[in-house]
Design a protein around this nucleic acid. Structure first.
Lengths: 217, 217
DNA sequence: GCGCATATTAAATAAATGTTTGATGTAGGT
DNA sequence: ACCTACATCAAACATTTATTTAATATGCGC
């Protein structure tokens, strides 16, 4: 936790020096603004103001604002893939793996509620090459992981057969995402606050729904 | 279907005349732009260009751009509530009601993929009074409807007990929403197109997941 | 202390944003 | 024909946007 209240970015191994330090401050500032606003709207001026850097440093460090956003995406999604690999390494059964995966995704939305929107926007604006690269860093490997998990579950008699991996990918993401996109609804319409207890209860609810929903007939 | 390819707005009973006709053209133009872009980004100039109206007509007809957006929200969400009431009137059992409800929500996302985002943005920007009014047109009555459906299902032994209505509301919305927010992923990462067959299969998948997920132990 | 690549700056740029102005057009009633 | 309320218009408004320029500062090897 920084003073901004936003969770930290996935750590960079080394301590950056020179322009790399400014580069890092710009990434962190963007993250903090996106996090606190629950949106992807922040001007270069705002980002640089928070990073205590001159606006021209965006071009100097990244080339453009869009390239800064892409760097932020790749930084975060890389940590998602690390997490999936770590989970695989635990050697758990399909149900427990899925339950922890749901908890992991919810945790990611707590930390980075804006990433999917950002990915979406960049994907729509991108040319064919950039779109392919963005797909490769997150959507494709994640669905592939889901496909393997579903197959393993069916094999062991834990999950029912015939569940489409693509639809399942969208279901899992959608279930977890909406909760955090819609925090204004939670507050204004339902008078609830997004605290740790609520997050934990939501994880339980979602994991129950998915695991029961996948149970064999 | 209009020439734009976008589904029509929920129909206004009467044929508008005078400035009301311009008002309607502005609403339709905004809808068509939002629909085709799958986003809520459209300048006043773009909206008025498509509506063949002068930019000053936004102030004249609505007072401001934000008021135009609120009018669009209220127009669409009103049709959602009509749909829920119609479904209640059919006197179906809890499972079939829920199955048709899922199909109905997916249908709404096909027609108005941008409404929830729009509601979200307006809710975040709104003052307390406006936020309360926006909550009242959609989130609150919809969750209340979900609560009654869950209670009826438990009563009749169709659903398991203890499912939180607020979480369930977010689950249902999230499941259906993500599919349409993420159409760029569907295309770029998975090479699939969002046609009628896919929508139908998605409805089936989602209804199965939710209905199985709610089944008693 | 000099020289040079790296890093940072203030200021200007052009384009786009939502809003506002005041003039102009257009019906319909009397 | 004349008035009036309604509807529309082109043009200017003040901000804000991302980007770019050219000048300057900084630190490090020698």
């Amino acid at each position: 936790m920084t003073v901004s209240g936003a969770p930290p970015l996935p750590s960079l191994g080394t301590d950056p020096t020179g322009a790399d330090a400014t580069r890092e401050r710009l990434l962190v500032a963007t993250h903090e603004l996106f996090y606190s606003r629950r949106s992807t709207v922040a001007s270069v001026a705002e980002i640089c103001g928070r990073a205590e850097a001159n606006v021209a440093m965006v071009k100097y460090c990244f080339g453009s604002k869009d390239a800064l956003l892409d760097a932020l995406i790749e930084r975060i999604t890389a940590s998602f893939q690390d997490e999936l690999e770590r989970l695989d390494g635990l050697g758990l059964g399909p149900e427990e793996t899925l339950r922890r995966h749901v908890a992991g995704i919810v945790g990611n939305y707590v930390r980075y509620p804006y990433v999917n929107r950002l990915l979406n926007e960049r994907l729509m604006a991108a040319d064919a090459d950039a779109a392919a690269r963005l797909s490769e860093v997150f959507a494709r490997p994640t669905r592939e992981w889901h496909r393997r998990l579903l197959a393993r579950g069916v094999e062991q008699g834990a999950f029912r057969d015939g569940v489409d991996p693509t639809f399942f990918f969208f279901s899992i993401m959608g279930l977890c995402e909406f909760m955090f996109l819609a925090t204004p609804w939670l507050q204004h319409a339902f008078g609830e606050a997004l605290d740790d207890t609520l997050v934990e209860r939501f994880v339980q609810h979602t994991a129950d729904l998915v695991l029961t929903g996948l149970a064999p007939a």
